[in-house]
Design a protein around this nucleic acid. Structure first.
Lengths: 171, 171
DNA sequence: TCTTGACCGTCCTATGTAGACGGTCCACTG
DNA sequence: CAGTGGACCGTCTACATAGGACGGTCAAGA
């Protein structure tokens, strides 16, 4: 079974051949909940090529080496699609630091929290904007966006419920 | 600067020497938002020992090789505590699959969603239980628990707002 | 013409994930 | 009392993810 990152690449390649550089850009754009680095894209592509799931096309513009999905690749993608998705994995440095923050002056802690609070508010505004702007979005992309909106709202509410001595200033 | 995982280990060691095995257990217990594997614990401990931030104690019970934090280690921990925490990183396989799920029969998709919906409801119940049971929790541990509760509530609300043809059954 | 920035690929190191493997020791059970 | 299951303890390997340095191409605009 292929991993999720490979699957995502195959998914994008169904719409036509792409070089690694573009695949990375596409992934970075559409999936904040599944980050992929550039180096990883190339490594996965090499593995996929070895396994015959993608095929390297003749070099295109500049150094671009587009890859196309093969029939075997499509089958592997469909197989992946049918498997049970794993549980999500959250890594939240802020909460780890908070766990140990009893030694930190309240002022300093509050300043840290403020940064994150502001960032989450900006993100929510961005997602809300996207939702309004792209009201015609395909249903499945709409729901992933909604996930982001729900998440940001929840985090913001959490910030606003923090004890007064460390709560960030909210307008 | 040490990484977050090392910092967490140092944080635990402030309460007294522990072997790697115990450190891993402690970390697994208290930090669902910062997962650490056993192999990683030992790797980090080796690095920390090389850098003089922890010190290997004489072997204790069984094969236990406890580590204690050094003065240098305490300083490194305090330095870490004062640095700005990074943004969180979410990896959500379910959303990735959803992004590509237009080919998946609605029935199959709904079954997948059901599994996760049920898991999140169970998690929320568990967190709520903890919050009720440990009402005397130190404030900083209380707020991290609250984060979990807010997150689970948000995800559950998201599930319940999904389009009718794929929404999981909610009691 | 020159420079900036998008485009393209490679490489390296550190960190995170997952599980197999080998072994010790205690408590319970038959 | 012997046997066994399960907690305890460390090691190891393989693969996945994160982040950025490096070297180079090419087109658009100053």
């Amino acid at each position: 079974m292929i991993n999720s990152t490979s699957a995502a690449l195959l998914g994008f390649l169904r719409d036509g051949p792409q070089p690694g550089y573009q695949l990375h850009k596409i992934a970075a754009d559409i999936a904040p909940f599944w980050t992929v680095t550039r180096s990883q894209v190339y490594r996965e592509l090499a593995t996929l090529a070895d396994r015959g799931l993608v095929k390297r096309e003749p070099t295109g513009k500049r150094d671009a080496a587009p890859f196309s999905i093969t029939a075997k690749g499509r089958a592997a993608f469909r197989a992946w699609l049918a498997t049970e998705p794993e549980a999500e994995n959250l890594r939240i440095p802020l909460l780890l630091k908070l766990t140990f923050a009893e030694d930190l002056p309240a002022e300093q802690l509050q300043a840290m929290l403020q940064v994150h609070y502001d960032r989450h508010r900006a993100l929510l505004a961005e997602y809300d904007g996207l939702a309004a702007e792209l009201s015609e979005l395909p249903v499945l992309q709409r729901v992933t966006l909604q996930y982001g909106i729900h998440y940001e709202r929840a985090v913001i509410a959490w910030f606003e419920e923090l004890p007064a001595d460390i709560a960030p200033a909210h307008s």
